[in-house]
């Protein structure tokens, strides 16, 4: 039911790796290490600045894929993959967008399931890729019934 969405992508959205958000995020995952939040520590580190935790891109806006209408409830996040060229630096600007990389359906012992593979990208101001993400989102039979109603 989402096959025709494959290849659709969002417009790039400008995001800033904000110091306050990095601190709040690091605390929320119980990892308030000074490499993330202490400015003086960051300056003396090999990076010369603070970095963000690897799952921080959860905070970013990736833009909407207009045609993709997903319910905001009942979806299952099946898998999550991050690939980094380097860590994210606190204070830097990252341009993010997302695309539907694939869609397939399966019928197994748990009944019908749809799998949407979303790819998410983060680039610096020069258009250089810094990270790529892949999310496997599972649509269950119950959610499908809601969608077609």
């Amino acid at each position: 039911m989402f096959k025709e969405m494959i290849g659709k992508r969002s417009e790039k959205v400008k995001n800033i790796v904000e110091r306050g958000m990095v601190k709040k995020f690091a605390e929320a995952i119980g990892d308030p290490h000074p490499i993330f939040i202490d400015e003086a520590y960051g300056k003396q580190s090999r990076y010369g600045k603070n970095i963000a935790p690897p799952t921080f891109p959860r905070v970013f806006e990736y833009g909407e894929i207009e045609e993709l209408q997903l319910p905001n409830k009942g979806l299952i996040h099946g898998e999550q993959i991050y690939h980094y060229k380097r860590p994210l630096f606190v204070g830097e600007t990252i341009y993010c967008y997302t695309e539907v990389a694939d869609y397939y359906e399966k019928t197994g012992k748990n009944g019908w399931m749809g799998f949407i593979i979303l790819k998410l990208y983060g680039e610096d101001a020069e258009g250089e890729n810094i990270f790529t993400e892949e999310q496997v989102v599972i649509i269950t039979e119950t959610v499908r019934k809601e969608l077609v109603r």
């Binding site: 690897p54 799952t55 099946g78 898998e79 999550q80 991050y82 690939h83 980094y84 860590p87």
Partner: peptide, 8 residues
């Protein structure tokens, strides 16, 4: 961390 792959 270059790659971080998780199955929930």
């Amino acid at each position: 961390i270059q790659d971080y792959t998780i199955r929930f």
